Amino acid sequence: MPAPERSNRAYRNVARVVRPVLLACTLRDWRGAEHLPKDTGFIATANHMSNIDPLTFAHFLYDNGFAPKVLAKASLFSVPIVGRVLRASGQIPVDRDTAAAGRSLDAAIVAIEAGECVAVFPEGTLTREPDLWPMAGKTGVARLALSTRAPVIPCAQWGPQNLLGRYKKLFKPIPRKKVTIVAGPPVDLSDLYDRPQDTAVLREATERVMAAITTLLEEIRGETAPAERFVWRRPKPGGPA
C-alpha cells in the first residue's frame, strides 16, 4: 500500500519494519475510517491500556492514509535509538506533570495548523481502571482542541492488551490476536470555543472526549462501563505507591 503523503523517509522506514510485524501478529477489525478528516489537521484520541497500543493506533491511522504525530512522554526521547527514531519521524515530546507541560503542546498546535494528524492518549498514561475502562483524562487534549478548534476524533481500541499486557514485558504474538479499533464522529466542543479556558471548561471538554471514547469501547466490548469514571492520582515522591 502507498505510504501517507505526509510521511517522511524516517517514518516510512519505521513503518517498513513495524507494520509487517503487526500484520503478522494481529487480526484487524477496523471501523469508522470515514470519520477521519481528509482536508484539515485533526486530533485523533484513543484509550490507553498497554505499551503496545500506540503502535496499533498508529497502524490504524497509517493504513488509512495518515502519518500521525504521536504525543509521547519526553523521557522516551532520551532512550538510545528509540529517541532518535521518535525525533526523526516527527513525534512530539510531552513533559508531563511539569511546568513545561503546557509549552509541550505548542509543537502539537503547529502540526495541527499545518494539516497534520496528531494522536493523543488523553489519560496521559496507562489506565489504572481495574477492568481496563478509560479513566479520567488529563486536560491537555482539551487545551489542544480549544486552542486549535480542530476536529477531535474519538477512537476506541480493544485487543492490544492481549499482545502485551498492562505493565507486562512479555510480548505474545502467537497466536494472532484480534485488534479492534473504531473511530467515531467528531466530539462537539463548539459551545466551548469562545469561553475562557478555565478549569471548568477544560474539564468539561476533556470529559466529553473521554465519554465518546468510552461509548465506542462499550460497543466493542458489548459491556457497560462503570457509571463513575476512575480517577488516578500520581503518588507523591516518597509516598505510598
Rank of each mutant, 00 (worst) to 15 (best):
P4V: 12
P4G: 11
E5N: 10
R6N: 15
Y11H: 07
N13S: 15
V18N: 05
R28N: 10
D29A: 08
D29H: 15
P37A: 08
K38M: 08
D39I: 07
T40D: 09
N47P: 10
M49G: 14
M49Y: 00
T56W: 04
A58G: 07
A58S: 09
L61D: 02
F66S: 02
S75V: 09
F77Y: 09
V82R: 12
R84V: 05
V85Y: 06
R87T: 03
G90S: 11
I92C: 07
V94Y: 09
D97W: 02
T98S: 15
T98R: 11
T98M: 10
R103F: 11
A107I: 01
A108K: 07
I109N: 06
A111W: 03
I112H: 09
E113A: 12
V118S: 07
V120I: 10
V120W: 01
F121Y: 11
P122Y: 00
E129S: 14
P130I: 13
W133L: 01
K138M: 08
G140F: 04
A142P: 02
L144W: 05
A145S: 06
A145H: 03
L146N: 10
L146G: 00
T148S: 05
P154V: 09
C155D: 01
A156F: 02
L163Q: 13
K172S: 15
P175H: 03
K178T: 14
I181L: 04
A183T: 12
G184H: 10
P185V: 04
D188R: 08
S190L: 01
S190I: 01
S190P: 05
L192V: 04
L192K: 04
Y193W: 13
D194V: 05
R195A: 12
Q197Y: 01
A200L: 15
E207F: 09
A212M: 01
I213L: 06
T214I: 01
T215G: 10
T215K: 13
E219P: 00
R221P: 03
E223A: 05
A225F: 08
P226V: 00
A227Q: 14
E228I: 11
F230Q: 09
W232E: 00
W232R: 08
R233M: 04
P235N: 06
G239P: 03
